[in-house]
């Protein structure tokens, strides 16, 4: 761990970040257009069925971490395989590859969070914002997604259907996470889903930092943290155990 190591991780992140929208006009704006469209469409439809105050703000705060997770998983899981040429030809710290995907997506998330904060303040909804909760939820999200991506990207090298499995899993996960709805709308006998889904508390913490209405359940938070730690450990252990031989499977 030295300066050169961090420079390298940074350069790889820059590469991932720069190349994504390089040739698109207004490249970066696309990062914002998607979630805004998503928010508007879902918001217009679901506001008929779901009664949550400030529903659009609630929705957008949940969609931001969710889009981060999907983007990171979708690009991160096959990342070792898509960089196989590079990995087979040069010796460098392999963790730079999934990390570059995670960090570049995290910059995107940071920009949308920042702009969303700005919009809220301008529109006069700034009084409910809790920056402490926001900071905590960002860190927690970063750790959890890193664990997930290290786990799936390493396995994907050996089992090439992992990418399809994660994609299917994400579709289910979207509805199993309280993004469109609030926990109070779900009967308690189904709450085991939220206990098992470590995203629950992260998304709720995001909503809480923007809307100021915190319905965090301490039991769920506890179990979520525990599962999160297990996920991160799994990711780190699986990667560390396999990184020596990763190149031979590519």
């Amino acid at each position: 761990m030295n300066k050169q190591y961090f420079e390298f991780i940074f350069a790889m992140t820059e590469r991932e970040f720069k190349t994504r929208y390089k040739r698109a006009i207004f490249g970066f704006i696309w990062v914002l257009i998607n979630p805004i469209l998503q928010m508007l469409i879902i918001g217009i439809i679901f506001s008929y069925f779901i009664d949550i105050p400030n529903y659009f703000i609630f929705l957008f705060s949940g969609l931001m971490p969710w889009n981060f997770i999907t983007a990171t998983m979708t690009r991160g899981t096959p990342s070792f395989v898509s960089e196989r040429l590079l990995i087979k030809k040069a010796k460098f710290p392999l963790e730079a590859i999934p990390l570059s995907v995670i960090f570049s997506n995290f910059i995107h998330l940071g920009v949308s969070v920042f702009l969303f904060l700005g919009v809220l303040v301008v529109l006069g909804g700034g009084g409910n914002i809790s920056l402490v909760f926001l900071f905590l939820s960002l860190i927690w999200l970063l750790l959890l997604s890193s664990g997930l991506v290290f786990f799936t990207s390493t396995l994907h090298v050996k089992f090439r259907d992992i990418n399809f499995i994660t994609q299917a899993f994400l579709i289910v996960l979207f509805y199993a996470t309280p993004i469109l709805y609030d926990l109070s709308l779900i009967p308690e006998r189904l709450w085991f889903i939220f206990y098992l889904n470590p995203l629950t508390s992260i998304v709720m913490l995001f909503q809480c930092s923007f809307t100021g209405q915190c319905r965090l359940n301490p039991n769920i938070v506890g179990v979520n943290i525990l599962i999160g730690i297990i996920v991160v450990l799994c990711g780190v252990i699986v990667f560390r155990k396999n990184k020596r031989n990763l190149v031979d499977w590519l």
Binding site: K3, A11, R15, K18, R23, L86, K89, A90, K91
Partner: peptide, 27 residues
């Protein structure tokens, strides 16, 4: 493989930095 570290969307100079760092040079 000389070109392994190149990304075609980046400029020559950007690629010099990237490839150099992949080969273990400092910035």
């Amino acid at each position: 493989e000389l070109e392994a570290g190149f990304h075609i969307e980046l400029s020559g100079v950007e690629n010099i930095f990237l490839n150099g760092m992949i080969l273990g040079m400092s910035k």
